[in-house]
């Protein structure tokens, strides 16, 4: 193709993209606050983008041309859980209403840790995040304030330096209490180190996504058993799951193989599965009672009792079939097959 033919084609492609992308229509009120690139602000794992539209900030991971929403933050009301799964994650506390130690795998914008710190100020909140730039973005744009960030790799520290000017007013609090800690490391490795150090948690949130899917080594029976080993007496694991792809059936069967009691919250979009390591039959009336107590004690800005309306005890997955193991976890295939 000659040059003159090329330019109109390129132009029409650009215009076409502009029309198709909703964000572009309102480009005038969309601000990009943070974006990783290959040069001054690289991320070793993601293309991270944080933008603000009408006071709502969104963290997105761009993968294969799609921007996957990872986290949202309302600048006018920082305590409002904007994405429904952030709110649904709090259903875990219906099963353990007085948490002393909480662990989260996968930071995102840090909405859950920030809310946990706010409503349970005495609890220790530990978060594990693989990508140092996600931590930088959460601290710079989502008002996430860890007391301390542990960086296992010297190389990861360099990434923090690239965000220095962003973090000038938003660094670690350095508070001696050390109640809000971030560990920059692979989730599986860190969980194993916690196990070896005999750290135990009342609630473990699993929310590690790499733009629409969970890395295979964080889906397997072996990993979930390790997470189960981190639980205190009465502790629970809460998983964020996308119900729209075949991977859901496999993943949920795997969870059910490790945890005998499952409670699934969420009607539309992502579901939160609260998994208990021992069979327990908890009637909704008891959960209702706990919800009211929690609401009264901590004055949540969102309604904890209404979470129970989103509880479903029906089996919403195919019960028979293979499960994910370290040996067999075709996550990459299943994440592309729709369920219906």
């Amino acid at each position: 193709m000659n040059r003159t033919g090329c330019i109109p084609l390129l132009f029409s492609l650009l215009v076409g993209v502009g029309v198709l992308t909703p964000e572009r229509c309102r480009a005038q009120d969309r601000k990009v606050l943070f974006e990783t690139d290959g040069k001054d602000r690289p991320s070793p794992y993601h293309h991270i983008l944080v933008d603000e539209i009408d006071g709502i900030r969104t963290m997105r991971f761009r993968r294969l041309g799609t921007d996957y929403e990872e986290s949202r933050y309302d600048t006018r009301n920082p305590l409002r859980p904007v994405l429904s799964y952030t709110r649904l994650f709090f259903s875990a506390f219906l099963f353990h209403p007085q948490p002393k130690r909480v662990l989260m795998i996968g930071l995102g914008g840090g909405s859950v840790p920030t809310l946990v710190r706010h409503y349970f100020p005495d609890a220790v909140m530990d978060t594990v995040e693989l990508d140092p730039m996600v931590v930088v973005a959460a601290m710079a744009c989502f008002d996430f304030r860890p007391d301390r960030v542990f960086v296992a790799e010297e190389a990861a520290r360099r990434y923090f330096d690239t965000g220095k000017e962003l973090l000038a007013s938003a660094g670690e609090t350095g508070s001696p209490g050390d109640r809000n800690r971030v560990f920059v490391r692979d989730g599986r490795v860190q969980v194993r180190l916690f196990l070896a150090a005999r750290a135990r948690y009342d609630v473990v949130f699993l929310d590690a996504f790499r733009g629409g899917y969970i890395p295979f080594h964080l889906t397997t029976r072996e990993f979930l058993s390790q997470c189960s080993g981190l639980l205190t007496e009465g502790g629970v694991v809460a998983l964020n799951m996308r119900p729209d792809f075949k991977i859901y059936d496999y993943h949920k069967r795997t969870v059910a193989a490790v945890f005998p009691s499952l409670f699934t919250f969420g009607q539309e979009g992502n579901k939160i599965c609260v998994a208990l390591p021992r069979p327990r039959d908890i009637p909704p009336s008891q959960l209702q009672k706990t919800a009211l107590e929690l609401q009264a004690r901590h004055a949540f800005t969102f309604q904890i009792p209404s979470l129970i309306e989103e509880l479903s005890m029906e089996t919403d997955y195919e019960k028979t079939g293979e499960i994910f193991t370290d040996d067999y976890a075709p996550v990459n295939v299943l994440r592309g097959i729709p369920r219906e």
Partner: peptide
């Protein structure tokens, strides 16, 4: 890499 990732993470 799959044999190693499950113990030492999925880094590059």
């Amino acid at each position: 890499p799959r044999l190693i990732e499950r113990d030492f993470g999925s880094g590059i």
